[in-house]
Design a protein around this nucleic acid. Sequence first.
DNA 1: CAGGATCGTTGATCTGCGTCAAGACTGCCA
DNA 2: TGGCAGTCTTGACGCAGATCAACGATCCTG
Lengths: 250, 250
Amino acid sequence: MTGTVESPVCASDGRIDPCSLCSARKLSVCGVLADEGLRRLSGISDHQDFTPGEILVREGDPATNLFNITTGSVRVYKLLPDGRRQIVGFLFPGDFLGLATGDRYAFSAEALTSGSACRFHKKVYRRMLTELPDLEAALLDRASHELQAAHNQMLLLGRKTAVERLASFLSDLAARDRRAGGPGRVIQLPMTRAEIADYLGLTTETVSRVTSRLKTRGVIRLLSLHSLSIEKPAELAELAGLDAGDGEAL
Amino acid sequence: MTGTVESPVCASDGRIDPCSLCSARKLSVCGVLADEGLRRLSGISDHQDFTPGEILVREGDPATNLFNITTGSVRVYKLLPDGRRQIVGFLFPGDFLGLATGDRYAFSAEALTSGSACRFHKKVYRRMLTELPDLEAALLDRASHELQAAHNQMLLLGRKTAVERLASFLSDLAARDRRAGGPGRVIQLPMTRAEIADYLGLTTETVSRVTSRLKTRGVIRLLSLHSLSIEKPAELAELAGLDAGDGEAL
DNA sequence: CAGGATCGTTGATCTGCGTCAAGACTGCCA
DNA sequence: TGGCAGTCTTGACGCAGATCAACGATCCTG
């Protein structure tokens, strides 16, 4: 799941381009670049390792960096003054962090697990974009898909019941696993119940109760606290409340 | 609010470029284009007028068109099989419709008021993008801001109370009016209570009750069913639950 | 300008999920 | 290997907002 950790150093010199070894490349926007572009991109990138809980981005700080997650996972969230938290997304290898920024970050990002990322200076990256139109196009594509995912999440948060929310979440994780080449049967949950709750607009207790209910119904089977197997994918999809063209648009 | 309706015909021939007369141009992505680019863009565009309730886009249909709203307003929404609806956004002059699409539309769009739009064939538009890098960059910018708005809406739907939701909504409309050059005091509500409810993840009854409460508190004053004046902007902002860098990032 | 349809408001009641509370499990460090 | 802190589960209860219901306001259309 964490992939072959090939230490994608992304340094600028040396004959061997580190990006060419990066296990996240084919999942990431960089995937569209040929050798030349890749070399130029790695020339302006920095490598950053992170450990669980480490803060990559803090809401309100000047938005100086952009990241490409190469290994591990990250939570992206927004806070209300009184501490209520909404997780707007979980990031996995190949995901881009920093798309939706003005001058300051409008969200925080913290490492969920240990992992690593390619870090870019925003200004330099933007300048590079004008020189690599393929990359810009890929980024626009990525942004469009994220926007679509955000719309789905609005539907979930605004109109779905607790069971539908959790079923949708698990189905999405399964779909993601399938897209990454896995079987989409066994799901890893690197996040805590509280984080799932803050992503789905629920409380830990409700997430726990609904999980139990799905388990009792035989729809899922818990392998450990942080991994489960989907026993009845069709029933799960049914519970998620799709039908209306909600499937996996590219 | 509906602006000077200058019938921005966007036809391809004739010496006068219709886009140069378009009242929505400076609010739209087209705004970044100089004469030459604007002429090329208008060459591939079509004009479409619409009347209230008219469907511009239907969820699940092949995604063939893109739109630029020039006058009037539009609701964009997703449905669950049983009819529950989540409105993911309201569009006004200058807004772009069709960013988040795969092969098929993942949302429906219906006219709220009468108005008009520039319509593009998606394939042709995408090809044009590669030739107009400024436009592509502007579109990426637009997508980023929409994504940010979507994140704010997730926070609203997942974690805010009914009062906070309505206060946020009204504050947003005021901010939009200010951005469009208005005073941001008097708000037009071209949508029904049911639509506000479906946008905020509430019911009509709750929207109505909360509106009454805000009115009683003297925070707002209803001018008519579809326009109101914000009497205490600061208190409204307070109720909306900002503080944490939620302000108007460009 | 009459009348029906739609939309909005307000009240009474219900309920899904939140809140509070108490154990049980897991994993980490000594 | 044992103990403790954090995480998870389960139960009892409460409440914000949904649902159900009735009525008033507004807007078309002829």
